[in-house]
Nucleic acid binder design. Structure first.
Lengths: 251, 251
DNA sequence: CCTTGACCCTCACGTTACGTGATCCCTTAG
DNA sequence: CTAAGGGATCACGTAACGTGAGGGTCAAGG
């Protein structure tokens, strides 16, 4: 019925120091202390610890947790709702940070062109080559694609680059429209082969992804990173082209 | 050409203490120190400070910023990309936390029923009454709606509650399907009047929102909070019904 | 020349939620 | 009786400053 610090620490998956600290700040006092100063915890203490850990997991401060647990008249729902608001703000902030980083990366990579085969502005396939090889190296499509690429001349690269630019601008134009719009569907079908030949693989998810381009950046990026590493960066370039167009700038 | 701490602090919008600290840790040493120990900053220092603040804004630690700025061979892009990964992880974590809070709130509110007119499980309109009155109190629809509600008997409330449950389950069933699916469109049209009479207002955005239900939770919530405070909670209840259905549980 | 007020400096402690020793005490098995 | 394996209490370290305390510097006005 009575547990020592070590026992509790192991059961709850926290350190002994943490229990000492919770005792110190009055968040979790052991039910009993022996003459020798040993802390002894009961099942009720364990239950309280579980609650503490739950709220800690949610990101509340220990002070707030103490308020919630000690004051029965404290409005827990209101506290949770307030905390939820904070989390939403953090989420929004992080979203903006990621956006800024993406723009910065794009600018940095625009500033120092890779001079050789920078297919699309801001998309450098060589950077992901290793991972791509690991994931698709065995597939016939990959082999064929590499073979094709090996035979390209400088003029070919120029043509491909121009074509890529066209695709980017097409994507930018698409984002205004309804994905169910037959014109959009037709555009996707028209460019299917181009995209496929360049990116080695194209699953049904990619089509849905193209139609889904207008969704928020967070989901957008996560989606593409899952489907195809490196693709997200290409898609972000398209996003930027779109934003530029919105702002009336000509790229 | 030489600025004192105060001048720099005001220009950059940081505290004097912050400049002291940056000097102390070697992140931003002033170009010159007078015999009396006064720090004097140059334009070059200001420029460096701008860079420091930029990276700080992105959430990098001061140690990392020092590495980035001091080592010209340091791969800034790689550092940014790594940081971006961290941010993505944080984002995912926060998303899960919010989800947990929502479930907790739903459980808490299920645990202590409001006993009176809890229309739908987890949706308590009285909670938002004040805001609703501020925003729509003047409208004729609101007045009429309140008048109707005032005349409801207990049996009416029971019926409405049952109907609400049906709508929730309908929504849950919808989420598997393509929003462009004619059946989905028809469902939305069928229930339009019901939803409208219950929520006082229904704009075209709401229809698009219904069709958009399958998007990620973050965007989902933000969208509904914008369209109609309190609606998000109702919609989340639908989400939970959906999840329960996925897990084979019957609610 | 002296004062006044604005500015500058260097400690040094407080913040959060513990991690990491150092040093010493208690309990129990062999 | 002893050794091992706890347990306890300091006490300092973490990141990025905020917030005084106590004292020096500088330019302008009397």
């Amino acid at each position: 019925m009575a547990y020592t610090v070590k026992a509790v620490a192991e059961m709850a998956g926290v350190s002994v120091r943490t229990l000492h600290y919770y005792d110190e700040i009055g968040l979790l006092r052991p039910a009993q202390v022996t003459a020798a100063g040993y802390r002894l915890y009961t099942d009720a203490d364990l239950e309280r610890l579980q609650q503490v850990l739950f709220f800690r997991e949610l990101g509340l401060s220990l002070r707030e947790i103490r308020e919630i647990l000690d004051r029965p008249d404290f409005d827990r729902r209101e506290a949770l709702r307030r905390h939820r608001e904070l989390l939403l703000q953090q989420q929004e902030r992080i979203r903006r940070l990621i956006q800024t980083i993406d723009r910065t990366l794009a600018a940095m990579e625009g500033g120092e062109p890779v001079a050789g085969k920078d297919l699309f502005d801001g998309f450098d396939p060589s950077q992901y080559e290793e991972e791509v090889r690991r994931r698709w190296g065995q597939s016939r499509e990959y082999q064929e694609s590499m073979e094709r690429i090996r035979r390209y001349t400088d003029a070919d690269w120029e043509a491909i680059k121009a074509e890529g630019k066209e695709i980017l601008e097409g994507l930018a134009a698409l984002m205004d429209r309804d994905p169910a719009d037959p014109e959009v569907q037709s555009w996707i079908r028209r460019h299917h082969q181009h995209i496929k030949s360049r990116f080695y693989t194209c699953s049904p998810e990619v089509y849905r992804g193209l139609a889904d381009l207008y969704v928020t950046d967070g989901r957008f990026t996560a989606f593409w990173e899952k489907i195809r590493p490196g693709m997200a960066q290409f898609m972000r370039a398209a996003m930027h082209a779109y934003c530029d167009r919105l702002e009336g700038r000509q790229s």
